[in-house]
């Protein structure tokens, strides 16, 4: 990610930070393109895995809170662009990024695929809850809100949060494993 200070004789497209950035961007683009698709077998009650959330978790799991928050902001804005800016997805993904980075993984959880799936499960529930809170707030504050009543919002939230959490956690290793391997290899410290 960060441009290294050391002088390199390699051409620009062969330098590690360029390749690393390119891989990171491409992985985000792939996630974005997966969002509107409903591939058979990747769908539960009309809900597909929350790829951006998996990406944010994979990103933040070994990074600081700030990096997690920035990733959440960027991907949230991208998802807003693909759906609708109200309510915003940035908030939920920032929360996910910060919480994932704050988790004391070395103390409680081990760095393996199962724990990543568990984190994704919890984070998917949190992300949908943040969105449902925003919708509820809008419903309570504005008089001519277009959203349905609170009871219906939270009933729908239950359904969405559960299927999204299950699917996302099942598909999390598919994204986490290659990305994590890549970032380990190209980490700026090495």
């Amino acid at each position: 990610m960060t441009p290294t200070a050391r002088v390199s004789s390699l051409p620009l497209w062969r330098q590690p930070w360029v390749i690393n950035s390119a891989v990171t961007v491409v992985s985000v683009v792939v996630c974005l393109l997966l969002l509107p698709s409903r591939v058979p077998g990747m769908e539960l009650l009309g809900v597909s895995p929350h790829w951006l959330l998996i990406w944010v978790v994979a990103w933040s799991i070994k990074r600081t809170q700030w990096e997690g928050a920035i990733a959440g902001l960027v991907l949230g804005l991208l998802q807003d662009a693909m759906t609708s800016p109200h309510p915003t997805h940035t908030l939920s993904l920032i929360v996910v990024g910060v919480l994932t980075a704050r988790l004391q993984k070395q103390r409680y959880l081990q760095e393996d695929i199962v724990s990543v799936a568990l984190i994704v499960f919890a984070m998917a529930v949190i992300a949908e809850t943040v969105l449902a809170l925003q919708i509820s707030l809008n419903q309570l504050i504005s008089a001519d809100s277009l959203y349905p009543s609170l009871g219906k919002i939270w009933l729908y939230h239950q359904r969405i949060a559960l299927s999204s959490a299950i699917l996302s956690s099942l598909w999390a290793p598919a994204l986490y494993y290659p990305l994590n391997r890549w970032w380990d290899r190209y980490s700026p410290s090495s």
Binding site: L32, S48, Q79, T83
Partner: peptide
């Protein structure tokens, strides 16, 4: 129809 909503809260079609 080539896609659906990029989020669970909306009912969109692409």
């Amino acid at each position: 129809v080539i896609g659906r909503a990029a989020d669970h809260w909306w009912q969109h079609a692409i």
